[in-house]
Simulated assay, not measured.
Amino acid sequence: MNKSKYIWYLFVVIGVVISCKKPYNPAIVSSDNHYLVVEGVINSGNDSTIINLSRTVKLSESVSTQLMTNYTVVVEAEQGNSYTLQSEGNGTYDIGPMHLDASKKYRLHITTPEGKQYVSDYVEVKQTPSIDSIGFIPKSNYLQIYANTHDATNNTRYYRWDYSETWRFHTKFQSSFIVDGGAVRIRRADESIYYCYASDKSSNIVLGSSEKLTQDVIFQTPINTIASNSEKMELRYSILLKQYALTKDGYQFWENMKKNTEQLGSIFDAQPTQLQGNIHNVSDLTEPVIGYVSVTNVQSKRIYINKGQLPNDWIEKYPYDCGMADSAFFSHPKTGYNDVLYYIIQGGGIPIDAIYGPFGLLGYTYSSQGCADCTIRGKVKKPAFWIDN
């Protein structure tokens, strides 16, 4: 092919590609409505039921969400008992174990302070099977955490998981001294800010289905991934996994939610779909309400992962650039203040170690709070559930 024909062919290919793309200009909907968001599961077993209520906000508003207080939230059985949840503030409503009758259907009934009524559809109680095991596999640059479960009766088929994770970590530098009453003194053991515990909750939607399998078995479904250089893997890590059985409709709601929130961004991803939950405004069925209420007993399981169980070449990356400086009791020629007073007592630096000379104490090494105080990112007190190895 000569050069001129090659160029002509190239232009044709480019023209075909461009012609396949069609501009998409979605209609911008401007609404002052704040739609109700209902989060939570009616727990039919031995655990508490916790429902969180909030309302959507416009992107232009300064707050990210509106938490709903002074609502009345009731679990109602079809032709049966009702159970009123207690408001804990901040949009949280809860009740202790209700031990619901698995042969009945239940719904959530919500009443606003203005008297507006919202109800979910009556849904059957789904029995959640136990979590068989939680495991992990070190990959090249991340840790894959997975779960196994099964239902011998083949009645579950649709599953959802969420989790909370906790890890023990330490600061870059260990402070042996503390500022107290305008002076620096030795830090007591109960004042240590070197080791802390931090926690987080899952923000992704984790689903699994055995619908297309002969047996109701979920094998090594991915739950969470953690980077190999994450501080979570520094000392000891724990994950508490919760498992929920879903109806087919409930699974489809969460699947659509996942597609709309996590799987958008390219032409190969799923396209946005209308979320159809099972909660409605009694007097206005056209009002959007976000959420899906399921009824099930929740199964949970916790595991711990130690640093020694991971590859030796996995080195955690500290989240701050850290360094130490020296401070002395000698006065600055310009300010008249000594380094200890200027950089530590008044400046907020964290004293690390003492500096001694031939005639006694000269000053201290010091660093920033982010590099020497773990309490800015965690808590010193060990969680009640935590088991040391």
Rank of each mutant, 00 (worst) to 15 (best):
R185F: 08
R185Q: 14
I186H: 12
I186L: 12
I186W: 09
I186Q: 13
R187H: 08
R188D: 15
R188P: 03
A189G: 06
D190G: 06
D190R: 04
E191V: 08
E191L: 07
E191P: 00
E191K: 02
I193Q: 09
I193S: 14
I193A: 12
Y194T: 14
Y195K: 06
C196E: 07
C196V: 10
Y197R: 05
Y197A: 13
A198H: 05
A198G: 06
A198W: 03
A198R: 03
S199E: 14
S199L: 07
D200Q: 11
D200K: 07
D200A: 13
S202K: 02
S202C: 11
S202Q: 05
N204E: 13
N204P: 00
I205F: 05
I205N: 02
I205Y: 03
I205G: 03
V206A: 04
V206F: 03
L207T: 09
L207Q: 04
S209V: 09
S209W: 04
S210D: 03
S210H: 00
S210C: 05
E211C: 04
E211K: 06
E211N: 07
E211D: 10
E211H: 05
L213Q: 15
T214M: 13
T214G: 12
Q215C: 07
Q215T: 14
Q215G: 07
D216H: 00
D216V: 04
V217H: 04
I218Y: 00
F219H: 08
F219D: 13
Q220V: 10
T221I: 15
P222E: 09
P222K: 03
I223V: 13
N224H: 14
N224A: 15
T225V: 14
T225Y: 07
T225D: 10
T225I: 13
A227Y: 06
A227V: 09
A227R: 02
S228P: 00
S228K: 04
S228N: 15
N229G: 05
N229D: 15
N229R: 01
S230K: 01
S230D: 06
S230C: 05
E231D: 11
E231W: 01
K232N: 05
K232V: 06
M233K: 01
M233H: 02
M233G: 09
E234G: 04
E234N: 08
L235Q: 10
L235I: 15
R236T: 10
Y237G: 02
Y237Q: 02
S238W: 02
S238D: 11
S238I: 08
I239L: 05
L240A: 11
L241T: 04
L241E: 03
L241F: 04
L241S: 01
K242F: 07
